[in-house]
Write a protein that binds this DNA or RNA. Sequence first.
DNA 1: CCTTTTATTGAAAATGATTTTCAATAAGAT
DNA 2: ATCTTATTGAAAATCATTTTCAATAAAAGG
Lengths: 147, 147
Amino acid sequence: MAEFDRLTSRYNSWIKALQDNGYRLTQPRLAVIKVLAQSDQALDASTLHEKASEEYPALSLVSVYRTLEKMEDLHLVTRVHRNEHCHAFVAGLEGHQHLMICEQCGKVYYFSGDDIHGLIEKVEAFSGYQVTDHWLQLFGRCPECIS
Amino acid sequence: MAEFDRLTSRYNSWIKALQDNGYRLTQPRLAVIKVLAQSDQALDASTLHEKASEEYPALSLVSVYRTLEKMEDLHLVTRVHRNEHCHAFVAGLEGHQHLMICEQCGKVYYFSGDDIHGLIEKVEAFSGYQVTDHWLQLFGRCPECIS
DNA sequence: CCTTTTATTGAAAATGATTTTCAATAAGAT
DNA sequence: ATCTTATTGAAAATCATTTTCAATAAAAGG
């Protein structure tokens, strides 16, 4: 299936990125990135630890934090915020810049937001600010959680 | 000055909102909301505590948290997120829905974002999600911090 | 005013998430 | 096969936030 391939190739490209940057391919690390690469949901450190422990039972929560830190440095994962539960991670935004999160199950949908460039320029003109970054997140219900 | 009036009237309307909702006007509370109402920057609990302590030295950090909680319940303040420093508060979004934050000094600029409704509808159609909320934040440099 | 009621307070303890320390281990180079 | 050193897990430390609780002070009623 196309979906399977996409997620597997993400896992493989992350492995390559780790190697290319001189990081060792350890079992704890591989367990963590495998889960995150193959998930389409935003996951926090502790949920990730839970899931990756099935893969590698000796896994410590500390290693989850450490792996996330490195993945974030390499821009492979992105931190997302919600009002309540605040630190979750998703596979990084490669090209497509924005995301929508299902409030119920955390499932993420990526979309491109070229439409807001005009808005940004307008706001820059009015405010005198220089915009360096923008952050657009939509929240709602995914098709499965609606029904 | 118009700016002074705007911030002072925000302070007064917050006082009224607290009274209308049966909250007592205590010194700790007044010190906290005075600082936040009259600030145009996103402030976190500890910075707020620092500043409000000048107003009322006996102020405890606990009271800052408790006051923020109530203000949030009353929708008088809004929680904002940045990648690093994650929980800061600004005066609530009354009507205008979006904000831009200066990365350097935290100064907030509000703007309306009607322009993204079209985008949201498009994303809904493609994804099958039902969008219930959206979150647009711009980051950059305010005029003072550019020069 | 003065008293009374009770929401609110600050200090201290508890919690929860994240980070640091450190000796032991295992990845990958030689 | 051995060596080097990045990486590990456990435990301790740190940091933000919340809870507990007895003392206080707002504001309502006399």
